[in-house]
Simulated assay, not measured.
Amino acid sequence: MTKAIAFAQYGDPEVLHPIDVEVPEPGPGQVRIAVRAVGVNPLDRRLRSGELAERFAVDLPFVPGCEVAGTVTAVGEGVTGFAPGDEVFGGTMSGGYAEHVLLAADSVGHKPASLGWEEAAALPTAAETAERVLTELGVRAGETLLVHGAAGGVGTLLLQFARARGITVVGTASEANHDHLRELGAIPVTYGEGLADRVRAAAPGGAVHRAVDASGRGDEIPVSIELTGSADRVVTIANTAAHEHGVRFNGGNGERYHRQAYAAALALHEAGALSLPLHRVLPLAEAAQAHRISEQGHLRGKIVLTV
């Protein structure tokens, strides 16, 4: 048996409790890893609270966690390129809040020795999302991209990927995070009333070509449409009600971009240009506290649990 953190009913963070589970055996195309660190994402708490129960039902008890870093302990049939003892990171649909987890081999990347466990666990979801959004939104070098929630886990990598491609980024964030965004090469603006005017004043030539909502604040969607001139030029990864404005919700239900995303992130890391700020690092046993912190918002980077 092995340990995991799960919820057996929907509710507040206190429904998260340790449970014993069988050590999983990898099937074809899977690898099993001994988890060293796991990223905490908004999806985890939205599943736990029951907010997504009607659209995304889960079997209870449910072990959350969709990005991990650890050591390979077994590989399934047909897996090549990975072997027991390899240090890796990767994404999974669930099960990350555990001592052992299964991952699809095509969502796993080798962890460089120079990349810490906590930073590696903070990378998979944000990197894949950033790569997917930039690709599917069609933003190009020389254009200006508006990113809402730019100081969060996804926003931080999104703006770094964009800057590496010659894209100018204007990012919304609280005043306390403005210096952080400037260090990453973005132009910071404060959200709230008068946002459209502040963005026009900050953007080169006053033009915004594309926008990504990573914050979920409903008032930012209409402003993004106004600034870009079309709902087709706006994507959200955080507001499931954005379709009411004709804006696409991109939750990653189609093609995945793990390989391209990991390559882009590790290229930045090797160049000494990758920033993966950690808002808070806690032991797995304090998963409930991690969810409380996540619910407060205004994060700079990711919350990570260590095993």
Rank of each mutant, 00 (worst) to 15 (best):
A53P: 03
E54Q: 13
G272D: 05
L16P: 01
E118D: 13
N250F: 03
L284R: 03
L268N: 15
T168L: 03
A201S: 13
L305A: 05
L115N: 15
E244L: 08
Y191R: 14
R182E: 10
T306I: 02
E136W: 07
V208D: 10
A113P: 15
V63C: 11
V40Q: 00
A263I: 04
R248Q: 05
V35R: 04
R217F: 06
L274Y: 08
T135P: 00
R259K: 15
I303P: 09
E67C: 11
G81W: 10
G78D: 06
G50Q: 05
L195C: 11
R46H: 12
A271Y: 01
A264C: 10
A83F: 04
G96R: 04
V169M: 10
A231T: 05
A287V: 03
G27N: 13
R45F: 13
G109R: 06
V63E: 12
A264N: 14
H209I: 08
E67N: 09
V147E: 08
L184C: 12
V307A: 02
T71V: 14
V234W: 02
A202R: 06
H298D: 07
Q260I: 07
I167K: 00
R163W: 12
G85L: 10
R163V: 13
A261R: 14
V21C: 14
S294F: 01
V169Q: 10
G218L: 07
V169D: 07
S294E: 02
P61K: 08
I303N: 04
E255Q: 05
G152M: 08
T236L: 07
P124N: 03
R292G: 02
H17A: 15
G185E: 12
T156L: 07
A127W: 01
L43A: 07
A285N: 12
G185P: 05
G39P: 02
R46D: 00
T156S: 15
G254Y: 09
V307D: 00
L103A: 13
L276K: 10
S174Q: 11
T80H: 06
V139Q: 08
A271V: 02
G29V: 04
I167Q: 03
G252T: 04
D20H: 12
I221C: 09
E99H: 11
A288R: 10
G192Y: 12
E22L: 12
V170Y: 03
L123N: 12
G185S: 11
A141V: 06
S174H: 12
G70C: 08
E87G: 05
T2Y: 00
G96Y: 01
E87N: 04
V304E: 01
L158C: 09
L43C: 00
A242K: 05
W117K: 01
P112S: 14
S114R: 15
A214Q: 00
V23H: 13
C66G: 12
N239V: 02
G27L: 10
I5K: 02
A8H: 14
F82C: 01
E99G: 09
A164H: 00
G11P: 07
L195I: 13
Y97N: 00
W117N: 02
G252D: 04
A211T: 08
A202H: 11
E244F: 02
N41L: 05
L137F: 15
V88I: 09
L158P: 11
E119V: 11
R163K: 14
H148N: 15
T190E: 15
T172M: 01
P277D: 03
D59Y: 01
T129I: 03
A130T: 08
H100C: 11
